[in-house]
């Protein structure tokens, strides 16, 4: 047995760069498929409500504002969102997408809410929803 087997390693690290980054001034790049916050592309949404049904946190809310004009309103409660991206998987028309933001904290949870008001799209779904 050798006394102080760790000392050479410790000394070597005196001359190495730190393992951490200088965060607020220098930011790490997020990976390509990073799961940030969900957002809607209203021109593609056919209001099938698959995202609303599958959301584990019940963070997506779709309401009809005008039935005759087929006008709908979607609210994403980002304060409840758990960033699992199940809505992206459930969406048959790729209308739900994830962005790459990670600095999303706020002083008020109501500011985290995102809203879209749009007319239902008549896009033919590319494929059947995965979880019909």
């Amino acid at each position: 047995m050798k006394i102080g087997a760790f000392i050479p390693e410790l000394l070597r690290h005196l001359f190495k760069k730190p393992a951490t980054v200088d965060y607020p001034f220098q930011k790490l790049e997020v990976p390509r498929d990073f799961r940030g916050s969900p957002f809607l592309r209203p021109e593609l949404c056919i209001v099938c409500r698959a995202c609303e049904r599958d959301c584990p946190a019940e963070a997506i809310e779709i309401t009809a504002t005008n039935e005759a004009e087929k006008r709908f309103r979607m609210v994403i409660h980002n304060d409840r969102c758990i960033h699992c991206a199940q809505c992206v998987d459930s969406c048959p028309t790729d209308a739900m997408q994830m962005d790459t933001r990670f600095e999303i904290s706020d002083y008020d949870r109501h500011n985290l809410k995102m809203e879209w008001e749009y007319i239902r799209a008549v896009v033919k779904p590319k494929s059947e929803p995965k979880t019909s």
Binding site: D33, F34, I82, C84, A85, Q86
Partner: peptide, 21 residues
């Protein structure tokens, strides 16, 4: 794990009938 699944802690890679990514 982050490059595979998009997140560091909760990978969310499983789905019923396979994996998501």
């Amino acid at each position: 794990l982050e490059t595979i699944s998009g997140n560091r802690v909760h990978y969310g890679i499983n789905t019923i009938g396979g994996v998501r990514r």
